[in-house]
């Protein structure tokens, strides 16, 4: 096999996992834009989504078309409960404190999942088929291709909703100026809840996709860390940054993992993060915050 073809295949696989990163990053961005909270539990919600799908599909024997929406709804429900129960009481506290609340939440979710399903990794019931797909001569795993397509469609839908749907406009308005949005009659607390529901639902959905590719385990939440790198590099409040950042990080991880060795994946990502932070502290597309005396 020619080197070039191999490189092309690696690149395609990188774009596939990059799309998943973008999707997960979108969960971060949605929540951050509306509520200025970095939700470090996104990774654990993603894991929870995988396990919920497992429970509905393998445990209750539901078909995939029913189990997937249920898993997403489950994630959204957790998001709603968390927003009302944990995040809203923290309104006005320092961002660090809220960030730590989400770390605590992550720990609780991991513990609960371990309590219910144990610590062993599991495979999800197959629902995508296995026949490989070829683009020209290049081989792509079917699951990765499907994950890429689904992520792309979901992101496109989000972009459209952001622009045209009332809720999306309200969310953008809230992100720009909370007080102004309030005085224009926008239901700001409603927007907060909405952002958490959609963000956590998105994370759960990404978990189903990720789990169907690589299986599920209580520690799969570390994927959230890679997605966190994406949002920091792209800019916490930038949807475009999440998309571009996700693909870039996906590609770099794929290349580093293939040509340098699997152990270089995470370290390259984090090295990149440090460089990005030093050059552009608020991300490639993020808004710079000015402080005055």
């Amino acid at each position: 096999m020619s080197d070039l073809l191999f490189f092309f295949e690696v690149t395609l696989a990188g774009l596939g996992s990059g799309a998943l990163l973008s999707l997960t990053a979108l969960a971060f961005v949605l929540i951050y834009k509306a509520t200025r909270v970095i939700n470090l539990a996104v990774g654990e919600l993603l894991m929870l989504g995988g396990y919920l799908f497992f429970a509905f599909a393998a445990g209750l024997g539901l078909p995939a078309w029913a189990a997937i929406p249920l898993a997403i709804a489950g994630g959204g429900l957790v998001g709603a409960v968390v927003e009302r129960g944990l995040i809203r009481p923290m309104l006005g506290e320092s961002p660090i404190a809220v960030f730590m609340v989400t770390i605590g939440l992550g720990s609780i979710l991991v513990g609960l999942v371990e309590l219910v399903w144990g610590t062993d990794p599991r495979a999800l019931p197959a629902f995508m088929g296995n026949a490989p797909i070829f683009i020209g001569e290049a081989y792509v795993s079917r699951k990765i291709a499907i994950a890429f397509a689904v992520a792309a469609v979901v992101i496109a839908v989000f972009l459209v909703l952001f622009r045209y749907w009332r809720g999306g406009v309200a969310l953008r308005a809230t992100a720009t100026d909370q007080a102004a949005a309030y005085s224009c009659g926008i239901n700001v607390p409603g927007v907060f809840s909405l952002a958490w529901v959609i963000g956590c639902g998105t994370a759960a959905g990404a978990g189903v996709l990720l789990g169907s590719i690589g299986g599920i385990s209580p520690s799969m939440g570390v994927f959230g860390l890679s997605a966190l790198v994406v949002v920091i590099v792209g800019g916490l409040d930038s949807v475009a940054g999440a998309l571009v950042g996700g693909l870039v990080i996906g590609l770099i991880e794929a290349w580093a993992g293939t040509y340098l060795g699997g152990e270089y994946k995470l370290v390259t990502t984090f090295g990149l993060l440090l460089v990005a932070l030093m050059i552009r502290p608020y991300g490639l597309f993020g808004t710079t915050e000015i402080e005055r005396l």
Partner: peptide
């Protein structure tokens, strides 16, 4: 332990 750890923080 994991759950209690999280609960204490929160």
């Amino acid at each position: 332990r994991t759950i209690v750890f999280g609960l204490l923080i929160v």
